[in-house]
Amino acid sequence: MRIVVTLDVMLARRKMKSKDLAERVGITEANLSLLRTGKVKGVRFETLAKICEVLECKPSDLLDVEVGAAVSEGGDV
């Protein structure tokens, strides 16, 4: 089982560019890109809360579970 980040879907729904989201959340575009592509091991709750605040959504709108998939290695955002 692995966690799938669906941030791109929410960005499209909100018609927002990732560059704008990174600026409003206070993280680098590089870190947001790593999060969007699922190349991180984890995300700080504070960062997740800020993303949800800006996008007016819940964490469950940004994260999904894929059953039967391998977990990849990554870093924290």
Rank of each mutant, 00 (worst) to 15 (best):
M1L: 05
R2M: 14
R2F: 05
R2S: 10
R2K: 14
I3K: 11
I3F: 12
I3C: 05
I3Y: 05
I3P: 01
V4I: 14
V5D: 01
T6S: 06
T6H: 07
T6I: 07
L7I: 15
L7G: 11
D8F: 06
V9Y: 06
V9D: 08
V9K: 13
M10G: 00
A12L: 10
R13N: 15
R13V: 04
R13F: 08
R13C: 08
R14H: 03
K15G: 07
M16C: 09
K17T: 15
S18G: 10
S18L: 04
S18A: 14
K19W: 01
K19E: 07
D20L: 09
D20Y: 08
L21A: 03
A22N: 12
E23S: 08
E23T: 09
R24W: 02
R24E: 09
V25T: 06
V25A: 10
G26V: 11
G26K: 11
G26F: 07
G26M: 08
I27F: 05
I27M: 14
T28A: 04
E29V: 02
E29K: 12
A30K: 11
A30P: 02
N31S: 09
N31F: 06
L32M: 13
L32V: 06
S33W: 15
S33F: 04
S33N: 15
L34Y: 03
L35P: 04
L35W: 12
R36K: 15
T37W: 11
T37G: 02
G38D: 05
K39Y: 05
K39L: 14
V40I: 15
V40L: 07
V40A: 03
V40D: 00
K41F: 05
G42I: 03
V43N: 04
F45S: 07
F45D: 02
F45T: 08
E46R: 10
T47A: 13
T47S: 14
L48E: 00
L48S: 00
L48Q: 01
L48K: 04
L48M: 13
A49G: 05
K50D: 01
K50I: 01
I51C: 01
C52V: 00
C52K: 02
C52Q: 00
C52R: 00
E53A: 15
E53G: 03
E53Q: 13
E53V: 00
E53S: 10
V54N: 01
L55E: 00
L55A: 06
E56F: 01
E56Q: 15
C57K: 06
K58T: 02
K58D: 01
P59A: 02
P59D: 00
D61R: 07
L62A: 09
L62W: 06
L62H: 14
L63E: 00
D64S: 13
V65Y: 12
V65W: 10
V65C: 04
E66S: 04
V67W: 05
V67S: 09
G68W: 11
A69K: 13
A69V: 12
A69D: 06
V71N: 08
V71E: 09
S72H: 08
S72P: 14
E73A: 10
E73I: 13
E73S: 05
E73K: 09
E73V: 14
G74P: 10
G74H: 05
G74D: 08
G75Y: 13
G75S: 09
G75H: 13
D76N: 08
V77D: 00
V77T: 02
